[in-house]
Nucleic acid binder design. Structure first.
Lengths: 140, 140
DNA sequence: GCTTGCTCCTCTAGTGGCTAGAGGATGTAG
DNA sequence: CTACATCCTCTAGCCACTAGAGGAGCAAGC
């Protein structure tokens, strides 16, 4: 279980070096151990967290939401009910996003199909996502 | 086809009033007509764009990506090949996101199920999204 | 052993995408 | 005709990075 430098951590996780330091600074991730030369040293578990954060951010989750998910991960046994409630909120939000993305995907696919048949596809990406019927609140 | 004020537009689309003005300012949306009293007046079509932008932003698309999608919408006939390429890039990205979200959804569901059975679920949300195998580039 | 060049460190400043607030005009309900 | 909401513009702040300055550490080749 070899420990790696911040540069290697960045390459392995896809999170940039300054961003990793930033996450440490805001307390989203714990400060890693340092070598004698003052350089940060990352474990495999730490890298997984980094990659997780990266994906969650790309999917539009806010830092606070990610913080909650990480805590859910770390303390699943303490107050099962609380964890359950948190998970449910996130689940609902995730499902909503999947629905929106699927609608968008179908519309993009329709456009590509139309295009490949040589005829001009009328673009309706707006209608696809403009539907205001899926109302919802903030993701906590 | 009644035209509405910025306040009504905000309520109807879910985009806040200052954000609407901001989108106008950065040129993401055209400046709407004004009444004699200098107040903005929005059409139904404009509202759809607003709602579209809102959903796209929530799904993590950058302003530039949204700009591209709106142009795709407005000029689908000019250079079908270019539109097709753009659509394909977005489609790939959208599918990747759907995959990630589905994995996250399944994991959250698993946690909730475990919890409802009274036993403590080991949380593996990190593993769910930490998978670095789905490598990818930026969404243009 | 010393230079070249990469990576690391900290710190400050800038960017994108909003969001809040000041200060003032205009519209609407009682 | 007053009270209050809504609109206007403008400036400043916030979140989540991102870039750059200035300097130290290490590894490889000469």
């Amino acid at each position: 279980m070899r420990e790696v430098s911040i540069g290697e951590a960045a390459r392995a996780s896809g999170v940039k070096v300054p961003t990793i330091r930033y996450y440490e600074q805001i307390g989203l991730l714990p400060a890693p151990v340092r070598r004698d030369n003052n350089r940060r040293l990352y474990t495999a578990a730490y890298l997984k967290r980094l990659a997780f954060i990266r994906h969650a951010r790309e999917l539009g989750f806010e830092i606070d939401a990610i913080r909650t998910l990480l805590e859910l991960q770390d303390h699943p046994q303490q107050s099962c009910a609380a964890a359950d409630a948190t998970a449910r909120v996130h689940l609902a939000e995730v499902e909503r996003r999947i629905g929106s993305l699927q609608a968008l995907r179908d519309e993009l696919q329709r456009m590509i199909d139309g295009c490949s048949h040589g005829k001009v596809a009328e673009c309706r990406v707006i209608e696809t996502l403009a539907d205001t019927s899926h109302r919802h609140g903030r993701l906590v």
